[in-house]
């Protein structure tokens, strides 16, 4: 193959290599700008990713839903339509195996276990990773535990998630009405 052809193919490949991160950014930015923010009560723990560093995994309180479907099995995709409760936190309106056509405010998750006789399904939400500076991730976990233990007023730990047409972007984690990044520095 001629050098010119190789170079042209390389230009094409370079554009794809640039397009992938650009696409990642633009889809997330669109959700952050035009999505609806929801608050999800949560509790963080801190694991590590070898390439992307320290993050806290968020265990959400919102993880079960009533359903008449008894055929749910582990790792099935599940779509959760959301609404807010009297305190402003996200709660499940209904669940489905397919996307909701009549609403933008739904998120995707995977079934943890389901199809039980009590008519509930347990699920994991997709947006359960919040990356933090390596020195802060462990402190964040400790801070969240202490916040719950001390029963402080306004001690809710929750994640702020923007949602648009089933896409969700985790924007911040709040402890005692403060961003977790600032809270651990306190």
């Amino acid at each position: 193959m001629k050098t010119r052809h190789i170079f042209l193919i390389f230009i094409g490949l370079s554009l794809i290599q640039l397009f992938v991160p650009f696409q990642m950014i633009s889809s997330k930015e669109s959700v952050l700008r035009n999505g609806v923010p929801y608050k999800f009560k949560t509790r963080p723990v801190d694991p590590t990713d070898p390439f992307r560093g320290k993050y806290i995994t968020l265990n959400y309180e919102l993880c079960t839903a009533k359903t008449n479907d008894t055929l749910w099995s582990r790792n099935d995709d599940i779509y959760i339509k959301l609404q807010t409760d009297s305190l402003g936190f996200a709660k499940v309106e209904e669940v489905s195996r397919s996307e909701f056509k009549n609403s933008d405010d739904f998120v995707r998750g995977t079934v943890a276990w389901g199809g039980s006789k009590d008519g509930t399904v347990n699920f994991n939400l997709e947006f359960n990773r919040y990356y933090m500076e390596e020195s802060k991730a462990y402190d964040a976990e400790v801070a969240a535990i202490e916040s719950v233990r001390d029963s402080l007023p306004n001690n809710d730990t929750y994640a702020v998630v923007y949602i648009k047409e089933g896409n969700a972007v985790l924007s911040d984690v709040i402890i005692n009405e403060m961003s977790i990044k600032d809270y651990v520095e306190k």
Binding site: V20, M24, Y131, V169, L170
Partner: peptide, 18 residues
């Protein structure tokens, strides 16, 4: 290429698995 995707995953807390 790997570091570029890693950094964007961090910035937007992209949950995509490893």
């Amino acid at each position: 290429v790997g570091s570029s995707m890693a950094l964007i995953s961090q910035i937007y807390n992209i949950p995509g698995n490893f």
